[in-house]
Design a protein around this nucleic acid. Structure first.
Lengths: 342, 342
DNA sequence: CACGCGATGTACATCGATGTAAATAGCCAG
DNA sequence: CTGGCTATTTACATCGATGTACATCGCGTG
């Protein structure tokens, strides 16, 4: 009983066959006699052998691992999504390596051609800061699927929801409640590439459809999509005496932060302000008031992204960029207390 | 320009030196002349070479990766903790592979001697279902640090807070507010091994110190530590007309779920019931009412766990089980609205 | 001027698993 | 009994980086 872990060589000796035969048994090679197969299996069990993945990796160039790269795990949307991806990957016998970038571009790029590139067969990424060039540069054959964000016109496999439609629906819901001055917390103007811009666009479309004017003053940019940013934005509104009828917050953290800040200043949701968020995180289901939100089908997002990625991985060779896939997953408006009375 | 990635051999040829010399430069070996070093560096830059980790892994047996094994990422405490571990690891140039087990024992053990064991140099685990035997069995030299939970008397490196003291303080705070009937949501009786049991013990100590009787009826077990479980427990209390003066919830999710369920039934926190949680997740800072809670120093937990693990990893050979380390990290009671009036 | 020593640099084997090509075994038709 | 197949098994090279052992270079010393 040698000190270290048994190697394939030990199994071979124990079973009285060659290393290759052991390898064949392990890899389910067809042409192995039952007798040999049984003998090898016995040896494996007896020695407690398990393949050394480093060796296999070196030889085959594949690891069976995929990376999930997200900005922040403590943003519930991402951790919930991560949980779904991990679950989906497990069903396909893959292991997920989760990376957090903090939305920093250097970490996002390094996830693509940096450290990860060696250890994983592919990457699912929700880019925040990535530039189109980064993606192009990273195109060394490592399969990449964009999840959610698609901050680039660069053609790439992508999975997401219809952000424009979702924002339109949410805004329409607020309008239907009789609200006229609706602020967009986390909104951003400009070409419709980022999620925030797409959603802002949907908001404008809804206004237009209702024949209402668009007021750029009501688009409130934020530094990040955290509770605190929502609270700050709402506080700013309140402090300059400009609390609108309703808030369309581009994620639930912003929404809950805003609700809280307004509450502290004497404005109650939904009586004084209606509030709608995005993402349907668990906190919004149990908050007081509970939060109306756009609920993307996270499980479907995760499944679609994984499926797409595995497809790319198995179709070896260079990615045929012509056949870029764009998958749109369902979402729905979940109406709760924060817009009650609508 | 070969199709694939450049290998160390290509760099060596380009620079006109041996492979080993390139390796020496990469690994910062001292005795390399400046001239050679420069030439090699130039070759590396020119070819865009980066080490192939599979090769290094095979040769050295180390990967520079560590695994973080947690029950659920969508439990905010764990995702926030994960974010800290990732950050700490980055400072030490390690990569963190995050695994989610769903609290299932098979996945926890497989993380220890299953798949992970091959790919990582060590594991930080928050076990929920792991049995002492599993840990012992996994002792094949893979360094393991327990984080938070320590559901075993087995001697093991462990990092956590003083759960008994924390629960005692929280309970004392509730008692100081004049509350007498205090329920423990998520509490569990029995030998003080699991976190829940330790906290329940602290609760009892506080009662005892105040000269109050202990009522087992007020210990409410839960299936899991989620919002919904807290809501169910509180609903059950309310529905049988037994809402106590205060709730000590063993995590913030339970607390927020309970607050919500009580709210739906007309009981307001803190006026009708005072509520205190554990973990200090972000949701509790912005909830209405904001949540009083025990705040563990998560950054310190992450740092301590990582430090301990890296120590074990670098002290090669077998783990000297005699020198097991137990690190206790600071916590503090953060008083917010949900126990206002105390 | 030969010797010795530290500083540099190199050739080769090695980590563990698997692809390749070729050897061997088993079986049937002739 | 033998050539010709196929089914099974094997020896060996290989993936890429690095440890080992040894060669070489430069320089100061006796």
């Amino acid at each position: 009983m040698a000190a270290g872990r048994p190697r394939i060589k030990d199994v071979a000796e124990y079973a009285g066959v060659s290393q290759k035969t052991v390898s064949n048994v392990i890899n389910q090679y067809e042409h192995v006699s039952d007798k040999t197969r049984r003998a090898v299996q016995e040896a494996i069990d007896a020695l407690g052998y398990r393949v050394n993945l480093a060796g296999r990796h070196l030889r085959q160039g594949r690891t069976g691992m995929i990376a999930l790269v997200v900005p922040e795990l403590d943003v519930a949307y991402f951790s919930e999504l991560a949980a779904h991806v991990v679950a989906a990957a497990e069903q396909r016998s893959r292991t997920v390596l989760i990376h957090q970038t903090g939305g920093r571009r250097d970490r996002e790029t390094s996830a693509l051609h940096g450290f990860d590139a060696d250890f994983v067969d592919g990457v699912i990424i929700s880019p925040l800061a990535l530039l189109p060039d980064d993606l192009r540069a990273a195109d060394r054959g490592l399969p990449v699927v964009l999840l959610g964000e698609r901050n680039t016109t660069e053609a790439r496999d992508h999975v997401g929801i219809d952000n424009v439609a979702a924002a339109r629906e949410a805004t329409a819901h607020l309008l239907a409640g009789g609200h006229r001055r609706i602020a967009v917390v986390g909104g951003r103007l400009g070409p419709a590439s980022g999620t925030d811009q797409l959603r802002t666009q949907g908001y404008r479309q809804a206004l237009e459809a209702a024949g209402l004017p668009f007021d750029p003053e009501l688009v409130l940019p934020v530094d990040a999509f955290h509770w605190l940013d929502g609270a700050r934005a709402a506080a700013a509104l309140a402090d300059r005496g400009a609390v609108p009828d309703a808030l369309l917050c581009l994620n639930d953290h912003l929404a809950l932060g805003a609700v809280r800040a307004l509450h502290e200043r004497g404005f109650k949701a939904p009586d004084d302000v209606a509030v709608c968020g995005f993402d349907d995180i668990e906190a919004g289901r149990f908050s007081i008031p509970s939060l109306t939100t756009i609920a993307p089908d996270k499980a479907a997002l995760a499944r679609a992204a994984l499926e797409l990625l595995l497809m790319r991985i198995s179709s070896d060779s260079a990615v045929p960029l012509k056949a870029v896939e764009e998958r749109c997953v369902a979402h729905r408006l979940v109406i709760r207390e924060s817009t009650a009375g609508c």
